[in-house]
Simulated scan of single mutants.
Amino acid sequence: MRDDSLPSQTALTAAAARAAHLIVDDDPLIFSDSLAWTFLGDRAEELLGFHRIHGTHLVLVGARTAVVTRGRYTEDRLAEAIRRGVGQYVILGAGLDSFAYRSELAGRVRVFEVDHPATQRYKREVLADSGVVIPDSVAFVAADFETRSLAGHLVREGFDPTSPAFVCWLGVTMYLTREAIDETLKSIGAFAPGTELVVDYMVPADLRDADGETYVTSVMPVAAENGEPWLTFLSPREMSALLEEAGLAVTEHVRQRDAVDAALWDRRDALRPFDLSMLARARVRSGE
């Protein structure tokens, strides 16, 4: 069962993987999260120790690969959106994401971090203890993806539903029912035309490679024991159907290998792309 006094275990392990990328993996770095270590708090040595000692283990390699590729892809797309004039950034399942506190682009957008209240409390406490100032441009939005009031929560925190936004939804869909995914996508589909979404999803067994299958069989039971079971796997066709039904036009589906520049896979370390999860990119269609 989840302990509501603590942040999500998933949020902690994802932050640990981002931090470990800067320590365990060689150049070229795929994604640089300079604050990830800070968010681990007093568990930093414990969580990073696994990567230091067992950094070439397939599960840890897979975790680092997933978080750095999706992070790099998403923030590259966000930078493009900001250059187009988009002024709102919604991070669904924000966890211990650090964009608003480290990126030079953060001052050019209003950032809405949507997540469970316990994770948000922990995050704010760690930031305060570390002397990191929370910018006025950041809004913390407490929401449950099994409910249907996402837009209402956002608007109450200052979100402008008439202006386009960039929305990212990473590391979450596998933990939700298909119905909950559908409801959240429909909420996003009702945002202003031109709103862009980047979302990742776990693929079913027939689309995984050997490394991806080993990762799932190793991690899925542990996630369930920790109270965060994986509930939904989607093929690109199934994800496209959900997006289209929600009013979003699909731009692309991207494998881990193709999420970043090919030169970044010319490596001497253990980091490598898996066929395990994919990223989908879509935009809210203009009204008829």
Rank of each mutant, 00 (worst) to 15 (best):
M1A: 15
D3G: 00
D4C: 08
D4T: 11
L12P: 03
A14W: 10
A15T: 13
A17M: 09
R18A: 03
D25Q: 07
D26R: 08
P28V: 04
I30R: 07
F39C: 02
G41Y: 01
A44N: 05
E46I: 02
L47D: 08
G55C: 02
H57R: 15
L58S: 07
L58N: 13
V59M: 07
G62E: 02
T65Q: 11
V67C: 06
T69F: 10
R70G: 02
R70W: 10
G71I: 02
T74S: 12
E80C: 11
E80W: 08
A81V: 04
V86S: 05
Q88N: 02
I91P: 05
D115F: 00
T119K: 03
Y122S: 12
E125Q: 08
D129S: 11
S130E: 05
V132A: 03
P135C: 10
V141M: 04
E146K: 10
S149M: 00
A151Y: 12
A151L: 15
G152I: 01
L154M: 00
L154T: 05
P161T: 06
T173F: 13
M174P: 13
T177K: 10
A180G: 08
D182S: 14
E183L: 10
K186A: 10
S187W: 07
I188E: 01
A190K: 14
G194T: 08
T195V: 09
T195Y: 08
V203H: 05
P204F: 03
D209F: 12
A210T: 10
D211T: 10
E213C: 11
S218R: 12
V219C: 01
V222I: 15
A223S: 14
F233K: 13
F233G: 10
S235I: 09
R237S: 14
M239S: 06
E244W: 00
G247W: 04
L248S: 06
D261E: 11
D266F: 08
A270W: 01
P273F: 07
P273C: 06
L276G: 11
A280V: 06
S286V: 05
G287R: 11
